[in-house]
Design a protein around this nucleic acid. Structure first.
Length: 300
DNA sequence: TATGCGTGGCA
DNA sequence: TTGCCAAGCAT
């Protein structure tokens, strides 16, 4: 046991959290020692805004089918989109395909191991770049995702939830607790994320099971409700996102290009429908072939 | 900095 | 049922 004086000064104790993670952390395939950096990168892209349970089977399929960046890069875009299935946000699939191509051509088929090079790749932002550096290469980097932001908001700031994101501030917040040693820092980052995913959850946090309960500023403050600005709610029904999703679903389901009439049935308002189809064409998620029919890109 | 971008499960 | 939520990114 640590002395009480130190406890009071540490809201997030790395040693306590790492010990908890070693015992309670999930055995996910992209966390196993034999997982490649490419496997970690694919997992991080798939996990953006998408639950683990939905990602895991797809990830296994992808790594078997495309075990290296060059293998994915060699596949047509349409095949990649079809393999993405209903994971959501299919632009991620296109960007991952483009990133794989860049890695194969410019980096000798090896996933880069530094933040700046990773940031230059499509679909890789502040979170994913540092997650790859930490989880694929075991290097020290401040990894901030929605879980980390929530844990810091509660344990450190005593707030019910995180306010609006500010990358600079959010990274500085967790940097204050990040261990100096590479391997320990990487494990700490995984542990904070895991705590947010399993215990310090958004809806009903399991504080009774929390390893840092005694150090938590939110507990000490009496668990006040979130007091920050209201978070914008994501609508889906009736949005362009829903219409685009339906259009793509038709094209994923057919090997052959389809006539426009096949797409027109997904939504009654012609104007909205056509604008959505145009936006999919502009995004490179759909292609129109010479005879006027529509298909997933790169296959015809 | 604020928005738009898919999908499905759960309370 | 409806709204909230899930390892963000690009513009």
């Amino acid at each position: 046991m640590r002395p009480l004086g130190k406890l009071a000064a540490m809201s997030i104790d790395p040693g306590t959290l790492i010990e908890w993670f070693d015992e309670r952390g999930r055995d996910l395939p992209w966390r196993r020692p034999d997982c490649t950096a490419w496997g970690v990168l694919v997992s991080e892209i798939m996990l953006q805004q998408t639950p683990v349970v939905r990602v895991q089977p797809l990830w296994t399929e992808w790594l078997t089918r495309w075990p290296r960046p060059s293998a994915l890069a060699a596949a047509p875009q349409g095949e990649v989109l079809r393999a993405w299935g209903k994971l959501g946000y299919p632009r991620r699939a296109l960007r991952l395909h483009a990133a794989a191509d860049a890695i194969a051509r410019e980096h000798d088929d090896v996933v880069p191991n530094d933040v700046d090079t990773l940031l230059a790749l499509p679909g890789i932002g502040a979170y994913t770049a540092r997650a790859v550096v930490a989880f694929a290469y075991g290097k020290r980097a401040p990894v901030v995702d929605t879980n980390v932001r929530r844990v810091v908001a509660r344990a450190v700031h005593g707030a019910g939830d995180a306010g609006p994101p500010s990358n600079t501030r959010d990274m500085a917040d967790i940097e204050a607790f990040l261990p100096e040693q590479d391997a320990e820092a990487a494990k700490f980052s995984a542990a904070v994320m895991e705590l947010g995913a399993l215990v310090c959850t958004a809806r009903s946090p399991q504080c009774a099971d929390c390893p840092i309960f005694a150090d938590c500023a939110w507990q000490r403050a009496g668990r006040p409700a979130y007091a920050g600005p209201a978070k914008p709610v994501q609508k889906f029904a009736g949005t362009d996102r829903q219409i685009r999703g339906r259009l793509l679903d038709v094209l994923r389901g057919t090997a052959e290009p389809v006539a426009k009439s096949r797409l027109d049935v997904v939504w009654s308002e012609a104007g909205r429908r056509d604008r959505c189809l145009d936006s999919l064409l502009a995004d490179g998620l759909v292609e129109q072939i010479e005879d006027g029919r529509f298909a997933l890109p790169g296959e015809h």
